[in-house]
């Protein structure tokens, strides 16, 4: 297996034009909403990367760019060194087979009119990976792989629980024998016990099959359990990235520290929460985006925006006044 990165994002920007607030109904005035602003990431084969941030940080837009569902307005998103936006022919087929997605809302992402068998077999049929005779055997093998009884094959989505649906979504993603799994909040909204089962399954699958995993989550505990590397996003920018263990042990960016403090921990006092909410990404003021909520902000934070700079071979952060380790 080559070690060339599977995904590489080079200063990806995704901006939307939105109607200016307060203008007349017929006004043509537009304002720029930068959902992603200069994101630089890479994912190597067999690696697991967590993208962490609150709502509005651009995590889902990032996923859409990676899957080729939206194209960046600036910068380049590369899959095996080729632009995702311009993949065609054989490359496009290969991309579809190699990159599998697990969506946030498992119930919404599965067609209620298809049986479990057809849902899991759809990628097999599409990529012509099996013959008609071994179709149900393949599906049964996939179902046992994710811990479902093959007896469920003829059921429909409406008859299944949330945890079972997540397992079906995972089986469906594995059907095309992908090399990368991209998951968007794949365990949110589940009971802690079901969440633990799904997380264990995902980690086992990732390790046994040598998959690369890109996992979008807002839960630092999930990121720490599942992923070797982490990238913390705030308002469309990566503010800190590195090895999960290092970042969570000694965060350099005040936002990472705040996220850590806000996560529930047994018998820890509820810390002083971050003031305010994530500001609107429309017409951001100059300077660091986090400055308005940051306890360490100084004058220079308001003037110019800190760039994501490497502090060590495995660590990058974007802050003028980082926390000492």
């Amino acid at each position: 297996m080559s070690t060339a990165p599977i995904f590489r994002l080079l200063d990806v920007q995704k901006a939307y034009d939105v109607d200016a607030k307060g203008g007349s109904l017929f006004s043509r005035a537009k304002r720029r909403l930068r959902a992603l602003d200069g994101v630089r990431l890479s994912l190597a084969p067999g690696e697991s990367l967590a993208i962490v941030g609150e709502s509005g940080s651009g995590k889902t837009t990032l996923l859409r760019v990676l899957l080729g569902l939206t194209h960046p307005t600036d910068g380049r998103a590369l899959f095996r060194e080729k632009d995702i936006a311009s993949l065609d022919g054989v490359d496009r087929d290969r991309f579809c087979r190699e990159v599998a997605a697990i969506y946030q809302d498992a119930r919404g992402s599965l067609n209620p009119r298809m049986s479990v068998l057809d849902l899991i077999a759809e990628p097999l049929d599409h990529h012509k990976l099996c013959t008609n005779s071994d179709r149900s055997d393949r599906v049964a093998a996939l179902m046992s792989r994710v811990g479902l009884s093959p007896a469920m094959m003829s059921r429909y989505v409406s008859a299944l629980s949330g945890g079972q649906l997540r397992r079906i979504a995972i089986a469906r993603a594995l059907a095309s024998e992908p090399s990368v799994l991209v998951a968007d909040e794949a365990v949110s909204g589940l009971d802690v016990s079901t969440q633990a089962q799904i997380l264990k399954l995902l980690r086992d699958l990732q390790r046994e099959m040598g998959l690369s995993l890109l996992f979008i989550t807002h839960d630092l505990g999930v990121a720490a359990y599942l992923c070797d590397r982490i990238a913390v996003m705030y308002l469309g920018r990566v503010v800190e990235a590195g090895l999960t263990r290092e970042v969570l042990k000694a965060p350099a960016h005040p936002y990472t520290r705040a996220l850590l403090n806000a996560s529930p921990r047994f018998f820890a006092p509820i810390s002083d929460p971050l003031p305010g909410e994530v500001p609107s990404p429309i017409d951001l003021p100059p300077g660091c985006r986090f400055a308005g909520r940051c306890v360490r902000a100084q004058d220079d934070c308001q003037k110019s925006e800190p760039a994501l700079t490497p502090a060590s071979p495995t660590r990058m952060f974007a802050c003028f006044h980082p926390l000492a380790s």
Partner: peptide, 17 residues
């Protein structure tokens, strides 16, 4: 309690379904 993830959780022992 064993299902709760803290930052240093290495192994999860989920309940059977």
């Amino acid at each position: 309690k064993g299902c709760v993830l803290e930052f240093d959780t290495e192994e999860l022992e989920p309940l059977p379904s």
